[in-house]
Design a protein around this nucleic acid. Structure first.
Lengths: 208, 208
DNA sequence: TAGATTGTTAATCGATTAACAATC
DNA sequence: TAGATTGTTAATCGATTAACAATC
């Protein structure tokens, strides 16, 4: 099992979404050509991406849809459940908690931490909110591997260090700050500024 | 003014953030080497990226910080204000509205639209909420160029078509759905699934 | 001056696309 | 069988990195 390049990995969720939609419609076989057309990719690209799962397609028919879904989910590690905590119960945190789609990724948020005393003991989207003081202990006890970080930029670095010290392995960082941590922790940043920069640039080019 | 490649464009906001932090500290000159070190990039990459702004640096000194900030902002079009509306006043929409950092991009959200009658007439984060029925008219009247789309996935396509028909030019799409629109409209998707896929994959690789 | 840093030209690397034989 | 689609090998493309002379 050689590792799949990141550009392909990033496309996998798009394939997955389409495939599940096909299956809902009762389709049993799907070709790279069809997927490519629907998603606006070149068919060769999709063919290559699907080949990376290790699955073999049938000339003329394409791929059997259920094994394909399974193979992609396995490549992503989405067949196993990933437990996570969410740190920072503001609007963004609530929005993410409320988004039921995460279940599709195998992502399960079991606890929320926040520094605001008014929120402690309440539930946000059905998930209980604990004080920051309990963070280290909770991670140590549960060995939970992942944290979703939705605190303000100012406290992001400090909170991230706390997470690292407690033994977290991966951080999905929504705070607009570049975290400096040891490379024991995998940090994945959702960078709205970069996304907006791309939009700005494409709009500008479009105008000319 | 030749166009700047997207990978560089996506890094520009990171440079900008660092540069502004330096300036707050009173620094007047900054070298590509210094920026590279702080951000974890190779110095050659940063040097190339900065050269794309058209600005010239001084050997031994680097770049004068204020012109550099200005040049990057201009390359991104962030020196001019971009007016936008936000469609979908849920948790995510509120979170984005509440995020004051958008002002740094020149992004100004002047109105919010939502289909929920209970929200009409109220304000979210100080911005007035209008009914969806007024959307087309508002865009037609104000010629506002951009929309931030934070509606549920199910209504994303329909709402996007409404935006296109009304004459919107760019959509920043936070809904987990691939929009099918004419290429008159620039769509920039914030894809949480792709981001999480990358995190999953990197964590998996890290384990071995 | 000496040395750090620039700008530029060439080399490398990886991803995407093209071409085509194999096959259901 | 005929034709669509696969898997694979080679070509292209673009971004990143390396090398190095120019210069403040």
């Amino acid at each position: 099992m050689k590792s799949i390049p990141l550009p392909a990995i990033r496309r996998y969720p798009l394939y997955l979404r389409r495939l599940k939609a096909y299956r809902m419609g009762g389709t049993l076989w799907v070709s790279a050509t069809m997927l490519a057309e629907d998603l606006g990719f070149s068919s060769i690209l999709v063919r290559k991406d699907l080949a990376l799962t290790g699955l073999e397609g049938r000339p003329k028919y394409g791929f059997s849809i259920d094994p394909l879904i399974g193979a992609i989910e396995e490549s992503l590690g989405w067949n196993n459940r990933t437990d996570a905590i969410l740190v920072g119960a503001g609007n963004l945190g609530s929005a993410l908690l409320g988004y039921s789609g995460f279940a599709q990724y195998g992502l399960e948020i079991s606890a929320v931490f926040d520094s605001d005393p008014a929120k402690i003991g309440t539930k946000v989207q059905g998930v209980p909110v604990f004080p920051m003081e309990k963070l280290t202990d909770f991670i140590g006890r549960t060995h939970i591997p992942m944290a979703v970080l939705t605190v303000p930029a100012e406290s992001a670095q400090r909170t991230a260090e706390q997470l690292e010290d407690a033994g977290i392995r991966g951080i999905w960082n929504f705070a607009p700050a570049k975290l400096k941590l040891s490379d024991k922790v995998v940090v994945q940043r959702v960078d709205l500024a970069s996304s907006f920069a791309e939009l700005s640039s494409r709009l500008k080019k479009d105008q000319t």
